[in-house]
Design a protein around this nucleic acid. Structure first.
Lengths: 231, 231
DNA sequence: TTTCTTCTTTGCTTAAGCGCAAATAAAGGG
DNA sequence: CCCTTTATTTGCGCTTAAGCAAAGAAGAAA
């Protein structure tokens, strides 16, 4: 596949980048295509590349010593991920990046990005915006996990995922994620997720299918998320 | 009180700053002194200032709609906090900053910091290092909260707090924090914290007092944190 | 179509830890 | 030194949701 450099303006971090820089990035990077369930990198690998997702979807997961996983973020097209290495030159990836479907991503050497940052203020600003957004999201999720009950957390998780990787089809938003993914993203278990989603389906809030959740009544979910439980 | 600009080199973000910049910062900022339990700012306030803590200790807390709190970070002398506003110009503070003891901090207008960032690469790098550190810490804490049991999380929390705000005295590390603070930092309750700390005290791992925890056997805590439980 | 695999559902049991209530202890103020 | 306030401890009951086991459903492969 060929990348059209102009497309890179869709990447938030690069929205103010001049075309010549986009050309430079495409020229200096390589396109890595991987199949479903494969990894771009593992937790602990030296952070040699930053990535821009070109096609597919990728999740960033972290495992504890016992092997239990949490989903920290789901990446969609034209999102940059693993930019950490560009900032901490000695760093290893603190997460693993696993493809949710066949995917391809531009791999940019951390070194290249670092050099570009020396002389391009827009790149610094873009990366900082990205990072502050991450920090705020993680702080919110941490607070939710510490203080909210599962049902509410699930509603918050699904709303968040919908805004990040939801797909609009026929006026409805669809999440192409398995219940396992939802469980790992909300800090719960597949059993509780299944039970809760079934309950919501009965109430007409959502529609579930294998590896798929359709939001029928987003407002109802917002009410659950905010604790305006009608039940 | 008078600030000696040269002291600001102890601030991580400013460790590479030339003295003239430190002078500029002191000149352009104001020193705010507040008493115990007061706030530098509340969650939701417009993020007009970034701060450098000069004396005392400050905690960053976030509340959920019901008023339950979580501690996101404890700040000690010469740490910068609330630097977010300097990056997102329209931002409001996503957390509140409350003094754990009488404190004073340099308040730097976000605008000033923003202007300085235009022409000072060291400042950009410093802030990015700070933010990547935050991100990694929050990701780890999130995973811990999602996957680990309370006792282990408590050990991890105490070890983390010890490295961040621990005070060395007579070869031992002391944490000047109440059990309430520990509970809010670990995502637990004062009851469970009390029970667990009592148990650890019996085992000789720590020594507790009102608003104070002394680590007697840090290695033992590490073992609990890593799941090498001897019990 | 038939078979296999993977995902989802559901009944049941159980452990963890929350949280009330009340007692006890420590610090601070006058 | 006494009194008030605030922090810590502990017994006890109870809820939540985790987790096993086993069945059912939906795709994928053959």
């Amino acid at each position: 596949m060929k990348i059209n450099p102009a497309d890179l303006n869709q990447v938030d971090v690069l929205k103010d980048a001049p075309l010549e820089d986009l050309n430079l990035i495409v020229e200096k990077s390589i396109l890595r295509s991987i199949e479903e369930d494969s990894f771009y990198f593992f937790q602990g690998d030296p952070a040699k590349y930053a990535y821009i997702l070109v096609t597919g979807r990728v999740k960033l997961v972290q495992s504890n010593p016992a092997g239990q996983q949490v989903n920290l973020r789901t990446i969609k097209q034209w999102e940059m991920f693993a930019a950490l290495g560009a900032i901490r030159s000695d760093a290893t990836y603190p997460v693993a990046a696993q493809a949710l479907e066949p995917s391809s991503a531009l791999a940019i050497e951390s070194k290249v990005l670092q050099e570009m940052m020396q002389t391009r203020p827009y790149l610094n600003m873009g990366l900082m915006q990205l990072m502050t957004g991450y920090i705020q999201e993680m702080q919110n999720r941490y607070r939710e996990l510490a203080t909210e009950k599962v049902e509410r957390r699930l509603a918050l998780t699904i709303l968040r995922l919908a805004s990040q990787v939801g797909i609009k089809s026929q006026g409805q938003i669809e999440l192409p994620l398995s219940q396992q993914d939802i469980a790992e993203a909300s800090g719960s278990t597949i059993y509780t997720v299944s039970r809760t989603l079934s309950e919501w389906e009965k109430r007409g809030l959502i529609e579930t299918g294998r590896g798929r959740i359709v939001m029928r009544n987003p407002h109802g979910l917002v009410e659950i998320a905010e604790g305006i439980e009608s039940a």
